[in-house]
């Protein structure tokens, strides 16, 4: 008799657990089904906002996120991995590019950058996506901490001004940070190499 009671209790418990699991999973599926599209939309919006920081909306009218391709250029982009490149067009004509690039020689590891370049070779903007530089020294490359990263805006790279792409200590145009010279050097070099690559490739990147 006792075994029956035990098995009934066990069965009842198992059934109840099962019921809970089913209800929980059902709830999760329901919530997921209506948050999923919202998340995708916000994700897209956030990405577009990031891209627009380095490529203002008034300069293009195509779908920037969709008009994307991958490029592999280890010397210029600091990585052997293919990097995304977004093409901005105004009425179908090339307006500018947004490129992800990496400064591989930061003080502590890679510095991921996003940079926008107008079709005429001027820089539209540069932002740091992620980095591990020392807090208080190298992290002035973030726009939240310092305006330094804005000093790239509008710059071009030509044969004549290549030497000005350096910090002031190296007789260039850019401010350095007290206590951290490696970080700004790394960022400047990465932007310079990427810009050089973009200039060399020219319209090919829009195809």
């Amino acid at each position: 008799m006792k075994t029956t009671t035990l098995s009934t209790t066990m069965l009842r418990a198992a059934g109840l657990m099962g019921l809970f699991v089913v209800v929980s999973v059902g709830l999760l599926v329901a919530v997921n089904s209506f948050t999923q599209p919202k998340i995708a939309e916000v994700e897209r919006q956030v990405m577009l906002n990031t891209l627009n920081q380095v490529m203002p909306t008034r300069y293009y009218n195509n779908n920037l996120i969709e008009d994307m391709t991958w490029v592999t250029a280890p010397d210029a982009l600091g990585t052997t991995q293919p990097m995304p490149i977004y093409r901005a067009r105004l009425d179908g004509e090339p307006a500018g590019l947004v490129i992800e690039t990496i400064a591989p020689d930061g003080y502590s590891g890679n510095i991921h950058l996003l940079m926008g370049v107008f079709a005429d070779g001027r820089i539209a903007g540069v932002r740091v996506l992620s980095h591990r530089e020392t807090p208080g020294l190298g992290d002035k490359i973030e726009l939240r901490k310092d305006n330094w990263i804005l000093s790239f805006n509008g710059r071009q790279l030509t044969k004549d001004n290549a030497h000005t792409w350096a910090v002031k200590r190296d007789r260039g145009d850019f401010e350095q940070f007290t206590g951290a010279t490696i970080t700004p050097r790394a960022v400047i070099n990465a932007v310079k190499h990427t810009l050089d690559y973009v200039n060399l490739q020219g319209v090919r990147l829009y195809e």
Binding site: G136, L137, F177, T178, G179
Partner: peptide, 9 residues
């Protein structure tokens, strides 16, 4: 840790 800029110059 608090003032790395002042401490490293």
């Amino acid at each position: 840790l608090s003032f790395p800029a002042q401490m490293t110059q």
